[in-house]
Write a protein that binds this DNA or RNA. Structure first.
Lengths: 210, 210
DNA sequence: TCTGTTATACCTCTTTTGGGGTATACCGAC
DNA sequence: GTCGGTATACCCCAAAAGAGGTATAACAGA
C-alpha cells in the first residue's frame, strides 16, 4: 500500500482524491494539508511514500515547499499536480527534483500510474506534458528565452509594470534609478521577444511569470 | 437522495467528488461529463436534481452550457464551480440563472450545503464570494464601470493590444484610422481607471475581458 | 582565476503614449 | 424626435516608451 500525503489548498479536490482510491488500487491517502508549512510536522509523525503536491498554493507554494523539505533533508518522491501546463512551472518543478508532473484533468488511471511510478522513483509525465517537454528540448534556445531566463529583479519589474507603474515610479519603489529600470525593461522585452509592455504583461501572465 | 450531474473537464476532480459522498450525505453523483455538449443527452436519459458545473471548460464552457440548457428549456438548478473569484464570472453566472457559486477550495461540508441549497432552489454563495458580492453592490457604479461597460469594439482593441500591436497596427488590422484607435484607447483607460497599457492588460485578463 | 550573469547607471534618438480638445454619423431607447 | 452611447476622425502637446549605445561593481560557477 503506497502511503500518500496530499498538499493542496483545494479542499474539494484533495478530499475527493482521498476517497477515490480503493484498496485494490494499492494507494492510500494517509494525510492531507492545505499548507506547505505543515508538511514537515506531518512527515515527522506519519509514514509517507509519495507526496502529491499542488504547485499553486497561497501561503507556501509547491516549489517553496519542496525547497523547505530539501533544507530539512527529507527525500520523499514528489508528484507535482497542477492545472496549468506552464513550461516555466514544469521546469522549476524538475529543477527542484520533482519525480513527476501530472495535470488536474488527468484520469484516475493516470493518477494511479503516476503515483506508482513516483513511489518507485521512476519519472512520470502526464502525456499532455510530454509533448511540451519535447518541444522545449527541441527548441531549447527559444523556450529558455521565452520562459526562463528572467532574473528575480526582472520579474519584480514586470510585477510593478502590471500594477500600472511607469519607469520612474518603479525606480522609486525599488530604490533604483529610472535609467536602471529602463535598462531592465529593455532586457526583459528582448528576452521575451515582445515590442510593447501590453504584450509583455499578457505573456507574463500566460507563462505564469507573474 | 439528491442526484447530481458533474460537468467538469478535470477528471481527477470530478472522480474525486464522485467518490467523496457517503450515503448519509444524501447526495449521489449519477453522471459525469467533461463536455458541456453532452449534458442534454445525459439529462434525456438520467434523472438529475442538481448540475455541478465548472465554469472554465475548453470545448463548451459553463456559461455557454447554461445557455444551451436554457435554449432546450431545461430548468435544473445549477451550482457553478470555479477556481477563480472573478466578479465577472460570478456576475455572468448569476445573470444566466445559476443557483449558486462555490469555489474549488471549499470544504466537503460547504459543498454538501451548497448542493442541498441548490437542489431546493435556494441561492448559495461560498463565503469567500459573499464578501465580493457585497463589495460589488456597495460600489455598484465603480464595478460596472470597471467590468462591464466596454463596448465590443473596445474589447477588440484590448485584444489587439495584448497581442503587442500599437495603435497604427491596430488601425490597419481593424480597417480604421490610427486616430480612432487612440480615441478608443483613451476611452478604455478612462473607463477602467488605469494609466498604462501594461496595467490595462493585467486588469483585462484579471477581469476576464480578454 | 576567469567568465557569465545580474544589477546598476547614464547617453542619445525616434516613435508612441497618454491626456486634452472637437466633431460627425449612426442607432436604439425613451 | 431628442438624447445617450458608439464608432469614427482629427488637432495639439508633454511625457513616456522603445531602441541603440556604453560601463562598472558584485557575485556565482566552471
Amino acid at each position: 500500500m503506497i502511503k500518500v500525503l496530499i498538499v493542496d489548498d483545494h479542499f474539494l479536490f484533495a478530499e475527493g482524491v482521498k476517497t477515490m482510491f480503493r484498496p485494490e488500487d494499492g494507494i492510500e491517502v494517509v494525510s492531507h494539508t492545505i499548507n506547505g508549512n505543515q508538511v514537515p510536522s506531518i512527515l515527522a509523525e506519519t509514514e509517507v511514500d509519495v507526496i502529491l503536491m499542488d504547485i499553486d498554493m497561497p501561503i507556501l507554494d509547491g516549489l517553496a515547499t519542496m525547497e523547505l523539505l530539501k533544507s530539512k533533508a527529507y527525500n520523499i518522491p514528489i508528484l507535482m499536480l497542477t492545472m496549468h501546463q506552464s513550461m516555466r512551472q514544469i521546469k522549476a518543478a524538475l529543477e527542484k527534483g520533482a519525480q513527476g508532473y501530472i495535470l488536474k484533468d488527468a484520469s484516475k488511471a493516470e493518477l494511479v500510474e503516476a503515483i506508482v511510478n513516483t513511489s518507485q522513483r521512476k519519472n512520470y509525465f502526464h502525456p499532455k506534458i510530454n509533448d511540451q517537454i519535447f518541444d522545449y528540448f527541441r527548441g531549447k534556445k527559444k523556450s529558455s528565452n521565452e520562459l526562463q531566463d528572467l532574473s528575480e529583479r526582472e520579474k519584480e519589474i514586470i510585477k510593478c509594470l502590471a500594477e500600472g507603474m511607469n519607469s520612474k515610479a518603479i525606480g522609486n519603489a525599488l530604490f533604483i534609478s529610472e535609467h536602471t529600470v529602463k535598462t531592465h525593461r529593455r532586457n526583459i522585452m528582448h528576452k521575451l521577444e515582445v515590442n510593447t509592455s501590453a504584450e509583455l504583461i499578457r505573456l507574463s501572465i500566460e507563462k505564469g511569470i507573474i
